[in-house]
């Protein structure tokens, strides 16, 4: 067992436990976006940032990937942590302002405005869907492509993957990409999205083996607007 101090409280956890699990175990809330039980830790969204160490040596680490160490002093909500978290949320909000999950997180952290240019991306590259596809669905149909500012998630060659079973797991876990519905281009469809929803989409065209996890169906709303 490893004993560490989280927000001044002594906690004993098993070796290999992450700081995030330890903090949540004794009831300190740590917000996350790219973390999900059952999927490997990835450390992409940085929202779970906590402060470890003391004085000038204190530093910020992502708690979902940092294993508990003997005698470590952790603060999950220090001024520095909250400031960093607010900045991260503000940036996430700038890239994906339409995401309900990010909006809610931002609101709960007291963000009333964001100073950056809004980009309306449909992906924050958190990698949840990639890990879901690989680790839970055993498919590996989607993955990261390119790098730098061109980095994106999708199927190889942007065509429907042979190993994709249209399970919809990627859409289910996604915190941001509610615009990735590909109803208009069923050939590229990752999940099949809204085609099964009644009343709107299914009446336009028949897709028998598709499922939809979208509530509400954004694609249909877009179609309606046109």
């Amino acid at each position: 067992m490893i004993t560490l101090k989280i927000n001044g409280l002594d906690v004993s956890v098993e070796k290999g436990t992450t700081l995030l699990e330890a903090a949540r175990f004794i009831g300190f809330p740590v917000p996350t976006l790219c973390h999900m039980d059952g999927l490997s830790a990835y450390g992409a969204c940085r929202l779970c940032v906590v402060e470890i160490g003391e004085g000038p040596k204190a530093k910020l680490v992502s708690s979902c990937t940092y294993p508990a160490e003997e005698g470590l002093k952790v603060r999950t909500a220090s001024a520095r942590v909250l400031k960093a978290r607010r900045m991260i949320l503000e940036l996430l909000l700038a890239s994906c302002p339409q995401s309900k999950i990010i909006q809610d997180l931002a609101a709960s952290h007291g963000i009333r405005q964001q100073r950056f240019r809004q980009e309306y991306e449909d992906c924050i590259l958190c990698g949840l869907c990639v890990r879901m596809c690989e680790e839970q669905m055993m498919a590996k149909a989607i993955g990261f492509r390119n790098r730098g500012e061109k980095r994106s998630i999708g199927t190889p060659f942007d065509i429907k993957s042979d190993v994709c079973r249209l399970c919809g797991g990627c859409m289910y876990v996604c915190p941001a990409c509610q615009l990735r519905c590909t109803y208009n281009e069923p050939e590229k469809a990752i999940c099949g999205a809204c085609a099964n929803l009644t009343p709107p989409c299914i009446e336009k065209e028949q897709f028998d083996d598709m499922m939809c996890y979208m509530d509400p169906c954004v694609a249909c709303e877009i179609e309606k607007d046109k």
Binding site: K140, G143, R145, N146, P156, F157, S161, V163
Partner: peptide, 12 residues
């Protein structure tokens, strides 16, 4: 290897 991994490296 899965095609995703190969494609990921090839585009990286």
């Amino acid at each position: 290897r899965s095609l995703v991994d190969v494609y990921g490296v090839a585009t990286f």
